[in-house]
Design a protein around this nucleic acid. Sequence first.
DNA 1: TCTGGGGTCCTAGGACCC
DNA 2: TCTGGGGTCCTAGGACCC
Length: 420
Amino acid sequence: MYALIDGNSFYASCERVFRPDLQHHPVVVLSNNDGCIVTLTREAKALGLKRGTPLFQVQDIVRRHKVAVFSSNYELYGDMSARMMKTIASFAPAIEVYSIDECFADLSGLSDLTALGFKIRERIWRWIGIPACVGIAPTKTLAKYCNHLAKKIPALNGVLNWNDLTPERRRKALACQNVDEVWGVGGRLSSRMLRLGIRTPLDLSEASEALLKQCFPSNVIDTARELRGIKAIEFEPTAPIRQRLVRSRSFAGDVYDKNDLLSAITMHAQEAARVLREERLVAAKVGVFISSNRFKSDVPAYAAMDVIELGRYVNDTPTILAGAEKLLHRLFRKGVAYKKAGVVLSGIQSVNETNGDLLGFETERADKLSEVVDLINNKFGKDTISFSAVKRNSDHWKMRRDMKSPSYTTRFSDVLAVKA
DNA sequence: TCTGGGGTCCTAGGACCC
DNA sequence: TCTGGGGTCCTAGGACCC
């Protein structure tokens, strides 16, 4: 049996932990650049706000109802997430962290699972201050679905165990939602399913495999099986090594100047290299992409991407910086209003798997240098020192983040003072 | 004026090879 | 007039997730 535990409106709930005055108030959290709404609370949904909407399109609703608006604060959410996962891990033999706000827990060998679900929920609330819901079932897809129902149906009090349902109630549970609420079925697939008469999760679970095989990608059959309680998707407690590492940002305004682009690209390259080392990985390819504003139809569109093979596995900042810089010179076209730029590392391996003999003196120097930079920045704070190839003086492209909350849990200067 | 970022997997089609 | 078959690898694009 598996549990799927997730924090409700996670980013907004993190903000509420330090702003108890907002407990029953509508709250939204924005994407980078304060662009779109990415998380909203129940109260905000009730006002008609939706995930993915650009803020400027709903400013009137926000003002009229005094919706609390926050810029994204990943430092805070990341730290709160780590605390939540640690709390959950203390209950189960193994967990699979699926995203920043949710994880699967393997409940093998445990008994009284419904009571356990309530206990987990209770403890996350008491220790972390985040409201969470728990779905329990014999497959991951059903656990996700039970979690969804637990969130949707107030009478469940946040926990639903599939095994507590009679066969008849299971059918009802599967028939009461649209098929796109199933994990792995999005908008496109569901509208194709609709045309074949598959409207609910129950319909999907009862569809003939021949039909599914003929009309949909192969993983849809696995999804349908999982809805029938047959395990088809593995539990993966240890994450497989990532295939790509991307750092990119949209700019607050239009960018024309090559040096501004260079500034963005070198910062992304430096950051990507740092994360690579943090995860004890190495990469064989560096890629760069730049693109103009896709929402502007009156100016010429331009998007370009290129990759170079480094010929060896690296994770030192100088090599990755040099590669990214070279690529930018290759891709840059004059006269384009750029809106986004990013760096992609691929051909990724674990440090342990690379052959140390291949490393010459030069790369050893670069490795040592990067290591020392990490040490200093870890000790004295992010960006204490930086590589000179990273042009940090250019602010033209900086992202907008006007409504960011303090880093309550990760910076001493931001810790709340409580007065009695 | 203002429209996110970071991932995964699958599939179709082109390039290339024998 | 007639223009193979089968395999691999890579890439771009589409679909999904949060």
